[in-house]
Design a protein around this nucleic acid. Structure first.
Lengths: 112, 112
DNA sequence: CCGACTTATCGATAGTTGTCAATCTATCGA
DNA sequence: TCGATAGATTGACAACTATCGATAAGTCGG
């Protein structure tokens, strides 16, 4: 059984409306919670921050600043990518990661 | 051992600067992750949404819409309150919950 | 093709968490 | 004081997760 990736819908999702506007549906809550859960780990918060600050960065340049092993870095990038917060592009030996600004905007919208 | 409340600093916290501006410190990441983790459960997302939409609501009026037992509701309100996202005020037999708008604004700021 | 390198996956483990039943504490009405 | 009600706490259990070592898969340089 694979590592339960929980990839969520991008763009066409059910959520975006502010939480306070009206009680959110179960489906929207599920999607929002998945994305928030992806940010619910300090290593991933810093990872996302590193990616955002760099604009583009490869996995190999994340190990040292985050102080985690290579498999653990892979685990976290996978989690953030599954939540749609970052995307990776394979470029030769490297996987270059970038943030998905619309995804962050979606979260801000939900918190508005 | 108590249920590891993980109450985070309110107001005087280390975070608020946008994630993308610069790699976030470990302390700031820890605080942000704690708050995001509190939102990383669909029941809590809907709970927060109910509180926000109602402006003020007691625990007893959360059980039915959320479809969870009373102890579970208490567990979730505790988690959200520990993250500073809601505050409860004991009023006679009831505990009335309200959202903490500044806390949501802090998260939006981090995602900006 | 071979060795070095980058990333992904697997397996194991320790720690965390969501859930409920049972129980306790506190408040209100009569 | 007594019974009813609201909420918190405890204990237990299943599910999930963060972490690493080992290994596999793919890519580049020579």
């Amino acid at each position: 059984m694979p590592t339960r990736t929980r990839v969520v819908e991008l763009g066409g999702g059910v959520c975006c409306a502010p939480l306070r506007a009206a009680p959110v549906s179960e489906a929207a809550a599920e999607e929002l919670a998945t994305v928030f859960a992806a940010l619910g780990d300090p290593v991933r918060v810093r990872l996302l921050s590193l990616v955002a600050a760099a604009g583009e960065i490869c996995s190999c340049d994340l190990e040292e600043p985050l102080g985690r092993s290579q498999p653990t870095i892979s685990h976290h990038t996978r989690a953030l990518a599954g939540a749609g917060l970052i995307v990776g592009e394979r470029r030769g030996r490297w996987t270059m990661w970038k943030v998905v600004p619309e995804r962050l905007a979606m979260l801000r919208g939900a918190l508005a």
